[in-house]
Design a protein around this nucleic acid. Structure first.
Length: 879
RNA sequence: GCGGGCGUGGCGAAACAGGUAGACGCUAGGGACUUAAAAUCCCUCGCCGUUAGGCAUGCGGGUUCGAGUCCCGCCGCCCGCACCA
C-alpha cells in the first residue's frame, strides 16, 4: 500500500512529541463522524413530513439486495443520491430520502444450502450489518421509513394488488415454455442458463411446458412507448433501450388459404409490398400446425425435437444454421390462386412473435435469402432501388432491404415501397383476408417462480372450482418459516401442511399455489410504499402518494435499464387502472451511474488472481506479494468482482479515512455516469484535502472577524479577487450540482480553497474575505463531506447544524469580472494576451491589440486586412 | 447485423454557445523544514527548441478570420439488442 494510513500518522506524532496536543490539532475523523451522525439522528434532521407549503423533492437510490456487506458500487450510488438530497434540502425543498431492502431472492436460498442458515435469518443478519455500514456513510436518510420486502407487512399488499390485477384482467395463467433444471427441479431465468446448462448444477437444461402466472404488460405496450417521450430527464440511451425492447412494428396480418385443407395459415409481415416476391411460407417448430403434421410424420417430429433441443442461449441462436423441413403443404397466393408456395417448418421462426408463421421474400430479407439459397427456392426481386437499372438489377448473396420502386408485382408495379405496403394492406382488408396491424416484441411478464424465498402467490387450486383467488379478508398468505432444504426443488411445495387448505368457494379440501412471485415485483412498487411505510390497512395512502410521487430523482445502475425500470412503469400503470393512484410515470428523473473498477493482479508464476491487500510495493516501486515477495503481474482495470479479487471493502476504507474521504473520492475526477477507477493514491488525495481544509480553517494566519461581522467598506485587490472567486464558485457549483457534474464541482471548490490558502489576511478587508470564503467553502462542501462541514461550521464560531443552513447565494455583482483577459491572434495563432476592461469598445480593443509589441513582431510589417473582435474573448488580426 | 456512445498529456479529466487546449486532481522529478523519516510547504511537469518559435485533441479532407467543438470519409475501443418476419 502506498502512503501511510492516517491512524499511524497520528500515532507517530504522539511518539515524537510526547504529547497529544498536535494530535488534537489534527482532524479526528472517527470521533467527528460518529458525533455528527448521532447529532443528525437525535435531532431527527432527515425525518420527512408532508408539507404542502414547500416544494417536495423525492430522491431515491435503487435499494440494495442484502447480500452481506456493502460494496463500492453502493458507496458510489448512495453518495451521489445523498449529495442531491442534501443539496435540495439546503435549497429549501421538502426532501424525502428513504432506504429499504430488496430482501427476497435466490441467494438467500443458496446460503441456506451452503451455510445451513435459514433464508430469513441470513437475510435479517445481512440487513443488520449493511444498515450499520450504511449509517457510517453519514447519509441523510429518513430511517424511520425503512422497509424490507420480505416482511409480511410489505408483501401482503402486493398480494392484494395481484388479486386486483386479476379482477381487472391484467393477470392470467397460461402454459409456457421454460428453462427447467432437472437436478434442482426448478425454473431458471434465461441469464441463468450458460451454454445450455444450469449455472449451478451444470445439468443440461430442458425446455418444459409449465402453467405460469403472467402479467399483461403488453396491454400497456403502446402507452409504455408513448410515455418514454415524456421522460425528458431520463438518459437517452435508457429510453432507446426500452423502445427497442418494446419493439413496435407496423405491418399486415393476413391468412393464406391452405391447399387441400379447409383451414388457413395466418402470417404477420412488415413487408406486404414484397408479396409478389414470396417464394415460400414458414412456420415455427412450435406452431400448432407443425405439431399436427408431426403426429403422422416421424421425420418431421424428429426435426422439431431437434430444433427444441438447440436451446435458447444467444450463442446457440447466433451460430445455428437456417434449417427447414418441407411439410408438403402449399399455401395459395392471396392475389393469384394459380400461385402456390411450399410451407416449411423453419428453425428460425419464433412461435412467440407475431403468428408464429411467415411468408418469405428472399430477395428482400437476408434470412429468407439464406434459407432460399440453401433449399434452392426462387429469388425474385420485386423492389428496385431508385438509382438501379430495373432491367439488370439482381440479388446475389445479399438481400436488398432498402426502399425503391416495385416491379414484377402486377397492380403494384411502379409504386414506391411505402405506397405498396398500404395498397396491399387495403386490398387484403377489402377481401376480408387480413388487416393492417401493429405488432410488439414485448411479451407478457411471467411471474411464477418455483422458489421458496419470495412472496406467495395468493391463489388456491380446487379440484371442483379450479383456480380460486384467496379472498381479500383471508390475506395475507404468510410464507411459512418452518421449512427444510434437504430435498431438491421448492421447499414450499415440500412443507407438510402449508399448502393444504380449503376452497373458499366450495369448502372442499384444496391446495395453495406453491409458486412465489418473481422478486422484480417487490421492486416494482417499493418507491410508493416509502410514502406511507407504516400503513397497514393499505399499501399506501392516497394522500401520501399524491404528495410525494413521482420520484424526482432516481439513481442506480444501468443494468436495470430495461427490466426493473420497465416493470415499475408497468406496475404503476396497472395500479392506476385499479384506482390505487393517479400517476403514469413513477420516476420523472433518472440517473444511471458508472461502475467502480480496480486494477487486477495475478501471481506471476501461478497466474492466480491476487487481492490488493495481498500486495506491497518493493524498493523499485513494483508490486510484489506481501508474503513471499514474489513478482506480480498488473492486469487490466476491471469491474470489482470477487472472482478477480480486485475488490476493496468500503468498510475498511471508511474505518481508515472516514466517510467524507470515501465520498469525496467517489465524486472527484470521473463524471458520475462514467466508470470510476478506485486507487489508493486517489483516496490518499481525498484524505489530504480534508486535512488541508481543516488546517486552513483552524490555523488561520490572522484572527478572523466574528461570525456575522459587518462587511468592510473596502477590500485590497487580493481580497477583492478572492471574493469574486468565492461568488463565482457559488454560482458555478450550484449549476454543477444541478447537472450532476460532481467532478467539476469538486474541482471548483478545490480551486477556491487554493486561492483562499494564498491569502495571508493582512491586507484591507482580507480577514473578512477569508471568513466569507471559509464559510462559503464549508456550505458548498456540506452535501459532499457533511461531517467535516459540520465540524468546520462549529470551528468557525457558529452554533447549530450546518445541515439546517440554507444554500449560499452568489452576489451577481461579484460573479462578473470587471476586467477580462483577451487573446490576441494573428491569422488565428495566439501572439499575446491582454488584460482589458470588460465590454471594451471593439475599435478601442483593436487599437490596444495592434499596439502590442508581440503582435507587431508577428505582423512583420504586412498590411492588416481585417480585424475580428469578439467582445471579452478574442481579437484576431488577419494579414 | 441493428442501435447508442466514446477517442484530448505518463494517468483520471476540464474546455459555457466555434474564440487563450489541458482547469482540478493523481503520478513523477527537484527543493525547503528535520539528526532522520513521515506529514507539510515551494518549484517543474503535452512534445521539440537555448530563446524566438514550431508541433499538438485517433487518421485524412472540408467549412471558417478562427475547429477538441461543425460537415464528409476512414480507423480503433466500449455498451445494449440480436433469427422479432
Amino acid at each position: 500500500m502506498t502512503g501511510t494510513p492516517p491512524t499511524s500518522v497520528s500515532a507517530k506524532l504522539i511518539d515524537s512529541t510526547g504529547n497529544g496536543v498536535l494530535l488534537m490539532s489534527r482532524y479526528n475523523v472517527k470521533e467527528t463522524e460518529a458525533k455528527w451522525q448521532n447529532a443528525w439522528e437525535s435531532q431527527g434532521c432527515f425525518t420527512a413530513r408532508e408539507d404542502a407549503s414547500r416544494p417536495k423533492y423525492y430522491v431515491l437510490e435503487m435499494f440494495p439486495y442484502p447480500s452481506g456487506r456493502i460494496h463500492m458500487g453502493h458507496v458510489r450510488n448512495y453518495t451521489i443520491g445523498d449529495v442531491i438530497a442534501r443539496f435540495k434540502r439546503a435549497k429549501g425543498f421538502n426532501v424525502l430520502h428513504p432506504m429499504g431492502w430488496d430482501a427476497f431472492g435466490l441467494p438467500a436460498e443458496n446460503a441456506a444450502l451452503e451455510k445451513k442458515t435459514h433464508p430469513a435469518t441470513w437475510t435479517r443478519e445481512n440487513i443488520a450489518t449493511m444498515r450499520s455500514q450504511l449509517k457510517t456513510m453519514g447519509l441523510s436518510i429518513d430511517w424511520d421509513r425503512e422497509i424490507a420486502t420480505c416482511d409480511v407487512e410489505y408483501y401482503r399488499h402486493e398480494q392484494k394488488m395481484f388479486l386486483d390485477f386479476l379482477k381487472a384482467g391484467l393477470a392470467y395463467r397460461k402454459e409456457s415454455w421454460v428453462n427447467w433444471d432437472p437436478v434442482d427441479n426448478t425454473v431458471l431465468a434465461n441469464e441463468q442458463v450458460i451454454d445450455g446448462r444450469g449455472w449451478r448444477t451444470g445439468a443440461l437444461v430442458e425446455k418444459r411446458k409449465l402453467s405460469q402466472w403472467f402479467l399483461k404488460i403488453t396491454a400497456f405496450a403502446e402507452d409504455l412507448l408513448k410515455g418514454l417521450e415524456t421522460l425528458d430527464r431520463w438518459p437517452e440511451r435508457v429510453r432507446i433501450m426500452q423502445e427497442n425492447w418494446i419493439g413496435k412494428s407496423t405491418g399486415v396480418r393476413f391468412r393464406f388459404a391452405l391447399k387441400d385443407r379447409a383451414d388457413t395459415l395466418e402470417v404477420f409481415t412488415t413487408r406486404p409490398d414484397t408479396l409478389f416476391g414470396a417464394s415460400f411460407a414458414a412456420i415455427s417448430p412450435n406452431h400448432p400446425l407443425a405439431a399436427e403434421l408431426a403426429a403422422s410424420n416421424p421425420e418431421l417430429a424428429e426435426f422439431i425435437a431437434e430444433c427444441n433441443r438447440l436451446g435458447t442461449s444467444e450463442e446457440a441462436i447466433e451460430t445455428a444454421e437456417k434449417r427447414g423441413f418441407d411439410t408438403g403443404l402449399k399455401v395459395v397466393h392471396p392475389f393469384d390462386s394459380g400461385l402456390e408456395l411450399p410451407v416449411y417448418v423453419a428453425n428460425f421462426v419464433l412461435m412467440e412473435y407475431g403468428t408464429g408463421a411467415i411468408f418469405a421474400c428472399p430477395a428482400h430479407d437476408q434470412r429468407d435469402l439464406d434459407f432460399a439459397r440453401k433449399y434452392c427456392l426462387p429469388v425474385l426481386p420485386v423492389v428496385v432501388p431508385a438509382d438501379a437499372d430495373p432491367a439488370t438489377f439482381t440479388v446475389g448473396t445479399e438481400a436488398y432491404t432498402g426502399p425503391g420502386l416495385l416491379r414484377n408485382s402486377r397492380f403494384l408495379d411502379g409504386l414506391d415501397t411505402e405506397s405498396g405496403k398500404q395498397e396491399v394492406g387495403k386490398k387484403l382488408e377489402e377481401a376480408g383476408q387480413g388487416e393492417r396491424t401493429t405488432q410488439y416484441r414485448l411479451r407478457d411478464w411471467g411471474v411464477s417462480r418455483q422458489r421458496y424465498w419470495g412472496c406467495p402467490i395468493p391463489v388456491i387450486h380446487c379440484d371442483s372450482c379450479g383456480i380460486v383467488p384467496v379472498p381479500a379478508d383471508q390475506l395475507p398468505v404468510v410464507l411459512p418459516e418452518d421449512v427444510t432444504f434437504d430435498k431438491p426443488g421448492n421447499p414450499l411445495a415440500h412443507h407438510p401442511s402449508w399448502k393444504h387448505t380449503t376452497c373458499p368457494d366450495c369448502g372442499k379440501p384444496a391446495l395453495r399455489e406453491t409458486d412465489t412471485f418473481d422478486t422484480f415485483i417487490e421492486s416494482s412498487w417499493y418507491f410508493a410504499r416509502f410514502c406511507s411505510p407504516k400503513e397497514d390497512s393499505t399499501a399506501f395512502t392516497r394522500e401520501s402518494v399524491d404528495y410525494w410521487l413521482g420520484v424526482d430523482q432516481y439513481i442506480g445502475g444501468i443494468e436495470h435499464a430495461v427490466l426493473h425500470l420497465l416493470y415499475s412503469r408497468f406496475w404503476t400503470r396497472a395500479l392506476k387502472t385499479c384506482g390505487y393512484l393517479n400517476l403514469d410515470e413513477p420516476f420523472t428523473g433518472l440517473f444511471t451511474q458508472g461502475m467502480v473498477n480496480h486494477e487486477t493482479y495475478k501471481d506471476a508464476d501461478s497466474g492466480a488472481w491476487l487481492a490488493p491487500t495481498d500486495l506491497e510495493k518493493d524498493d523499485a516501486g513494483q508490486w510484489v506479494r506481501a508474503d513471499s515477495k514474489a513478482p506480480v503481474n498488473v492486469g487490466r482495470v476491471e469491474k470489482m468482482s470477487k472472482s478477480k479479487k480486485n475488490v476493496v471493502d468500503p468498510a475498511h476504507i471508511i474505518g481508515t479515512y472516514g466517510a467524507d474521504a470515501a465520498r469525496l473520492f467517489m465524486l472527484s475526477d470521473s463524471p458520475p455516469e462514467r466508470d470510476l477507477e478506485w486507487t489508493e493514491s486517489g483516496i490518499d488525495g481525498a484524505w489530504r484535502y480534508i486535512n488541508r481544509l481543516w488546517r486552513m480553517m483552524t490555523e488561520t494566519p490572522v484572527a478572523l472577524p466574528a461570525a456575522g461581522s459587518p462587511k468592510p467598506a473596502a477590500f485590497s485587490p487580493k481580497a477583492e479577487a478572492a471574493r469574486r472567486l468565492v461568488h463565482k464558485t457559488i454560482a458555478g457549483m450550484s449549476e454543477d450540482l444541478d447537472k450532476f457534474r460532481f467532478n467539476k464541482a469538486v474541482a471548483r471548490v478545490r480551486e477556491l480553497s487554493n486561492t483562499l490558502g494564498e491569502l495571508d489576511g493582512s491586507g484591507e478587508g482580507e480577514a473578512w474575505a477569508l471568513r466569507e470564503g471559509f464559510e462559503s467553502v464549508v456550505r458548498l462542501i456540506g452535501p459532499m463531506m457533511p461531517h467535516l462541514a459540520e465540524e468546520l461550521w462549529i470551528e468557525l464560531g457558529h452554533s447549530g447544524l450546518l445541515t439546517d443552513q440554507p444554500w449560499p447565494e452568489a452576489d451577481p455583482a461579484l460573479v462578473v469580472e470587471d476586467s477580462v483577459t483577451m487573446a490576441v491572434q494573428v491569422n488565428g495563432k495566439l501572439r499575446a494576451t491582454l488584460e482589458l476592461p470588460r465590454d471594451m469598445a471593439k475599435d478601442a480593443a483593436e487599437q490596444v491589440a495592434l499596439a502590442d509589441a508581440n503582435v507587431q513582431r508577428a505582423l512583420e510589417g504586412k498590411p492588416v486586412r481585417k480585424v475580428i473582435v469578439v467582445p471579452n474573448r478574442v481579437i484576431n488580426v488577419v494579414v
